[in-house]
Design a protein around this nucleic acid. Structure first.
Lengths: 355, 355
DNA sequence: TCTATATTTGTGTGCGCACACATTTAGAGA
DNA sequence: TCTCTAAATGTGTGCGCACACAAATATAGA
């Protein structure tokens, strides 16, 4: 086996004729070093292509990084929000010897208070970093500012609030998700078929990104010539209970019996699909996220396409970004868009297995 | 910051009242240890939940892992085969301090000899592991058996030869790729539209996986009711030169002017697209791989869908599998299918950026 | 010129583990 | 009971680095 021995601090010391202590000083910019030796050392580093061994460094430092996550609760492993968490844990377990410690906190998507409470708990713990899914806009801004004050770096995942000072945003470009949804639905429909967009949110006002998705969806139809007969409706349901959804859909479809395609802007498309099947409605459906119930409906044909936004990857990347920031002092780019996957019956299993 | 100190060998030593040397013996199963102490130590390990610190272990061992890759040449960074290589290098650079060393070897997709020659070179170097894209079936089997003899573990990527003893196969389930291609093309066409499958290979006989893709494609139409008027043709072109392709297509389209959709089973869909555009043919096109020329045609509308098989991920995973095998003695599963991504104009940029 | 004090540089220890080697203990033979 | 050897266990060193502390050198003040 070829052994191209890595160059070590000691090699630099020999080459530059100084002791390792001095080298340490120039590497970390601490203490005083005479300009002459400093230059000599820098040359040696350059010449011998020295890169500190991260293992040895980490071992010597013995630092611990304590990171808290604050994302919606995932009651079962099939829930969407278990996926980013899985990514987080995957990375953390790979790097546990580097001293990464994760503490997961959850909030309810339907209770702003639960968000605030967990935010407070986290703030008291003074973590080294925070991973945040800022789905409640107002409360998230408050929390972000608190973290700013405490100089605790945080990253947003899944939804972005560009006005804040997050280290980075990792997630989809929401508008494009909507746009792609429109494109997919459009391939399934005749030119004049009517379309319905279904939003589910307690108050869309405090979850701006849903609006962004719908805008993206509508933009597709603005950009592409449409039959003047086609209409695109919106229905907002302030709940994600199946019974509520069924009631609102019934009400809507009675008034508008000619809907041929539906786009659901959150991960509850399965509820709509079940309604369609129950009432034997032949309506094409496009939704979001590979949660179990959606996958089931995808496989039985109730949903045509699901859009997935690399949830596991988001979690993984979030921790990695913080890790690189702590260990390498690497400043991430402000926005890290993730792949927007198009999932259908035929490729769904590969996604589930690969995560 | 909370500091849940990891338990170390020394902790075990104190708890079990033995020296670290003895613990080392039971952990690595070397030397003799009295049953009594052995049991005590095992209990301590269990009780204190001891996991050896991988950093310290790696540092102490100072081992180097030398891995060779043998995949088709990528003349430019835009070539498909630069992507798995990128994955390989990404992983290797992340883990360089763990002693991973990569040497990349290439062969020409049109010269079996170049494959054999590089195989020989690699064999002489006695690497610790090999990553192989076995696109020439006969030669790959030869090489695989040579590696078997030398007890050098190897992994297949992108294409599989199940009869061999590869540590694992990492890549798509090729049949499904074809099936998905069919599904996508089908959504774009009217029920009776005729379809053409284009293969490009010097000899399809020595590249079995192309046949598998086409079979998958045709299976879709067997499984789904078709108009009896629809015909699915196959055209095999023994070259990937644009001029050859144009000539063969001309010949074919003159005889069969009613083709409405084309499926190209390798990464050369762009050549077909250019032909279509030149001759103002309105034919829907589905192909493989995010190579630059394909992306261009995708964006200008000449290609409707591209199927991508996580090329970067494949490379990354290949090295990771070998690494885990060496370091943790982890036996991978025989087959690791990767996601089959559906790419269209709207989401293509996110893929390119995310890799 | 000789202290007293900055300034600059060098040395030693530990991080957690693997491994060679030293030391102790148990068992066999006389 | 004593010696000799094998079995069992303990100790010391190094991996490459960070950091506290010790040592050496330069500078200023008298």
């Amino acid at each position: 086996m070829s052994k191209p021995k890595k160059t070590t601090i000691q090699d630099i010391a020999n080459y530059a004729q100084v002791s390792v202590g001095t080298i340490d000083r120039v590497i970390h910019n601490r203490g005083k070093v005479s300009p002459i030796k400093k230059k000599k050392i820098e040359e040696a580093i350059e010449h011998l292509n020295f890169n500190p061994n991260l293992l040895a460094r980490t071992l010597a430092l013995g630092k611990q990084f304590f990171i808290c996550t604050l994302i919606p609760e995932a009651k079962t492993s099939q829930n969407y929000w278990s996926l980013p968490l899985r990514g987080v844990e995957q990375f953390a377990s790979n790097y546990k010897d580097f001293g990464i410690e994760i503490e997961a906190h959850e909030y309810s998507l339907f209770e702003e208070d639960s968000f605030m409470e967990q935010a407070r708990v986290i703030a008291e713990k003074n973590p080294d970093g925070v991973v945040l899914a800022p789905l409640f806009e107002k409360e998230s801004i408050q929390f972000a500012q608190l973290l700013d004050d405490k100089k605790i770096p945080y990253v947003f995942i899944d939804a972005n609030i560009p006005s804040q000072n997050a280290l980075t945003y990792i997630g989809p470009e929401s508008g494009t998700s909507g746009f792609i949804g429109a494109r997919l639905l459009n391939t399934l429909l005749a030119p004049a078929d009517n379309i319905l967009v279904v939003n589910m949110a307690k108050g869309v006002d405090n979850s701006a990104h849903i609006g962004v998705v719908e805008n993206g969806f509508r933009n597709f139809f603005k950009e592409h010539q449409q039959s003047p007969d086609r209409k695109v409706f919106t229905l907002t349901i302030p709940s994600s209970e199946e019974s509520d959804i069924a009631r609102e859909l019934t009400k809507f479809y009675i008034k508008n019996p000619d809907i041929k395609g539906v786009f659901v802007t959150n991960s509850m498309a399965s509820a709509v699909s079940k309604f369609h099947r129950t009432h034997e409605l032949d309506i094409k459906l496009v939704g979001f996220d590979l949660v179990e119930s959606n996958v089931e409906e995808l496989k039985n044909g109730g949903i045509e396409f699901l859009i997935s936004q690399s949830p596991v990857f988001q979690g993984k990347r979030a921790i990695q970004t913080l890790f690189d920031f702590f260990v390498y002092r690497k400043e991430p780019s402000l926005v890290q868009y993730v792949p927007i996957d198009v999932i259908m019956k035929e490729n769904v299993d590969y996604y589930i297995n690969a995560q």
